[in-house]
């Protein structure tokens, strides 16, 4: 079972995950410049220009964020998994991967948010119970996480 087919070399360089976002971001930068230049004769169209710029900023930021953090996160997850496998860590230990537990709070958040948003149409009186359920469920949700010592 432990036979290794090839040694794992530590991954180096820019992670592929980042490259995807860098590619999207670079494309958005280029296309935004073309869009602005092409629209100068008829007046700059701001909504598209800004949307494309936001696309570029988000993608490049996220790519950089991943480049900085992704290997560390992946190593952490891997390490925890290995410790669970070897029995060093109980499966339901706070540090272990959060495995499915039942929780009623997401349903409460959904109902609460649904009533609240429906209140946008039906009126504020309709939203009141919604907000109450939403807040209560959000607190319950957070509390449940805290009890487990995670999140």
């Amino acid at each position: 079972m432990n036979e290794q087919l090839a040694p794992i070399e530590p991954a180096t360089g820019i992670p592929t995950e980042s490259k995807v976002f860098y590619a999207l971001g670079t494309f958005a930068v280029v296309i935004d410049i073309i869009y602005v230049l092409a629209s100068i004769p008829g007046g700059i169209e701001w909504s598209g220009t800004v949307s494309l710029a936001a696309t570029a900023v988000f993608s490049l930021f996220f790519g950089y964020f991943l480049q900085r953090s992704i290997r560390r996160v992946q190593a952490d997850v891997e390490d925890v998994e290995a410790r669970v496998e070897s029995g060093e860590l109980a499966e339901d230990a706070p540090e272990a991967l959060y495995l499915p537990e039942t929780s009623i709070w997401p349903l409460g958040i959904g109902v609460g948010a649904g009533l609240t948003f429906a209140g946008l149409g039906f009126g504020w009186w309709f939203a009141l119970p919604g907000v109450a359920i939403l807040v209560h469920s959000a607190i319950g949700f957070a509390h449940q996480s805290r009890e487990r010592g995670r999140d």
Binding site: N2, L5, A6, Q74, E78, E85
Partner: peptide, 14 residues
């Protein structure tokens, strides 16, 4: 990261 992978560290992880 060609290669591998035995059983021991095969679940989860990146």
């Amino acid at each position: 990261a060609d290669g591998v992978v035995g059983a021991s560290a095969s679940k989860g992880g990146g």
